[in-house]
Design a protein around this nucleic acid. Structure first.
Lengths: 230, 230
DNA sequence: TTGACAGATAGTTCATACAATAATGCCCTG
DNA sequence: CAGGGCATTATTGTATGAACTATCTGTCAA
C-alpha cells in the first residue's frame, strides 16, 4: 500500500472538473474564449451543463496556469496577450525546450527518431502545400515528441502550461512567409542535431527557434498596437 | 476597461481558498503534512475551520503544482518524495535558475547586488555558527532575490512551484558537513559572477549548484531505501 | 482455515441554497 | 442638467446536503 506511484493517474477515469479544465483550456487556446473577456460562471455552467462547483475548481487550476485571471468578488477573465507577457513566456519556454533537447538526445530511441523524422517530413509537406493549420498541428506534435523523449514528466507538465499561452499567441499573430521559411529551416537543424544526438547543439537551436518566434510575434503585436484581445 | 493588467492581483484582498492554498503549501513544505499521507477533506476542514468548497479548490491548485496527488473518488494524498521525482525536478529547476541567472545579470541594479551580498554575508555567518535553519532561510531568500532581479514573474511562478518540492526534500534529507561546505563555496562563485554580471558563468554555476544538491539528496534517499515519507 | 460475496460505512463528487460583495440604475439634490 | 448617494440586481464566495464510489467487515460456503 506504500507503493502508490505519483504517476498512477494516467489510466484513471477522469472526473468532471478535470474534463472541464481540459475543455476550457482548449477553448482558450483556440481563441473561442478570446483574451480579455469576462467569464461569468453561470454562462459557462449553462454552456457545459455542469454546476458551479466543478467549474470553479477548473477555473482555479487554469488561473494557476496563467490562462485566466481571477479578480476576487469580480469573477474570472481570460488573461490578455501582451508583448510583456510574451517577453516573459518565451525565454522560460526556451529554457525548458533546451533542457528537453539535451535530455532527449540522451534518452531518445532509434524508433522515436524515426517517428519524429516522419512527423518532420509530414510537416514539410504541409509547408509546401501552404496548409498552415496542418503545419501547426504537426509542428506541435513534433515538439511534444521531443518532450516525451526527454523522459521527464515534470518538465512536460511545465512545458505544457507555457505552451498553452504560446499557442494562443499563434492564433492572433499572422505568420509571414519569411518567418515560416525560417522556422522550417530551424526545424531542419533540429532534426539534424537530434539524429546526431548532439544535445548541446539541439538545445541551442531550440532556444533560437523560440527567440525567433518571439521576435515575429512581437512584431505583429506591436503593429496591432499593444494589448491584444479586447 | 481594456487596460486591466494581468498582474493586478498583487494588492487585492485574498480570498479564502487562496489563503488556504498558501497555508496548505506551507504545511506540506515544512513536513507537517508528510509525504504520502492521506488528506481527508473533513479533517482539514475542521483543522482550518472552513467548509469543503474552498478547501477542495485549494487542493486542485496544489495538485496542479504536484504537491498533492488526487485519486478520483479516493481523495487526496501528499505526493511522495522519490529519487525519481528528484531526478525530474532538479534538472528543470536548474534550467530555470540558470535562465534566472542570465536575466538577472542583465537587469540587476547595483543596489540589488548590495542587498544580495548582504544576504550572502548573513548566510555565511549562519554557516560559521552552524545554524542550519537560519542558513536555509537566508539561502532561500538569496535565490528568490536572484529570481526577482530577473524581472520575469512567469519564471518566478514556475520556479516557486518547483521550489516547494525541492524544499520539502531538504526537510527529509540531512545535510552533511562536506556538502554544506561545497554549497557555501558554490554560493561564493554565484556572488562572484553576479557582481561581475557574467550571465553565462552565473547560469553555469547555478546549474551545477542544483546538480550537486540533487546528488547529495539522492545519496541520502538511497541510503534510507527509496520512497520517503510513508 | 481460507476465499468470496454482501451489506455497511466512510469519504468523495457534484448540486444547490444561502450570504456577502460589487455593479447598475434610479432618484434626489444642488 | 449634472453629480452623488441609495436601493436594487447580478454575480461571486461559502456552506451544506444528496448521490455515488470505494473500502472494510462479517458471514457463509468450500
Amino acid at each position: 500500500m506504500n507503493y502508490l506511484s505519483n504517476t498512477t493517474k494516467d489510466l484513471r477515469r477522469k472526473s468532471l472538473h478535470e474534463e472541464l479544465t481540459q475543455t476550457l483550456r482548449d477553448l482558450i487556446i483556440h481563441g473561442s474564449l478570446p483574451p480579455g473577456v469576462k467569464v461569468p460562471e453561470k454562462d459557462l455552467c449553462d454552456a457545459c451543463s455542469v454546476s458551479r462547483t466543478p467549474l470553479r475548481e477548473a477555473l482555479k487550476v487554469l488561473a494557476s496556469e496563467g490562462l485566466v485571471v481571477l479578480e476576487p468578488n469580480r469573477g474570472a477573465r481570460v488573461s490578455l496577450i501582451t508583448p510583456q507577457d510574451m517577453d516573459e513566456v518565451f525565454p522560460v519556454m526556451g529554457a525548458l525546450e533546451a533542457l528537453a533537447g539535451e535530455l532527449a538526445c540522451r534518452n531518445v530511441t532509434d524508433d522515436e527518431i524515426r517517428e519524429i523524422q516522419a512527423l518532420h517530413d509530414e510537416m514539410l509537406g504541409h509547408y509546401r502545400g501552404g496548409d498552415l493549420e496542418s503545419y501547426f498541428s504537426v509542428n506541435q506534435r513534433i515538439h511534444e515528441a521531443v518532450l516525451d523523449a526527454a523522459r521527464n514528466p515534470t518538465l512536460t507538465t511545465h512545458h505544457r502550461a507555457l505552451s498553452a499561452r504560446v499557442q494562443r499567441a499563434r492564433y492572433v499573430a499572422n505568420t509571414t512567409p519569411a518567418r515560416w521559411a525560417q522556422a522550417v529551416q530551424e526545424h531542419e537543424d533540429i532534426m539534424t542535431h537530434l539524429r546526431a544526438r548532439d544535445g548541446d547543439k539541439l538545445a541551442q537551436v531550440l532556444r533560437l527557434h523560440l527567440e525567433n518566434k518571439l521576435t515575429a510575434i512581437k512584431q505583429f503585436l506591436g503593429r496591432r498596437g499593444g494589448v491584444t484581445g479586447g
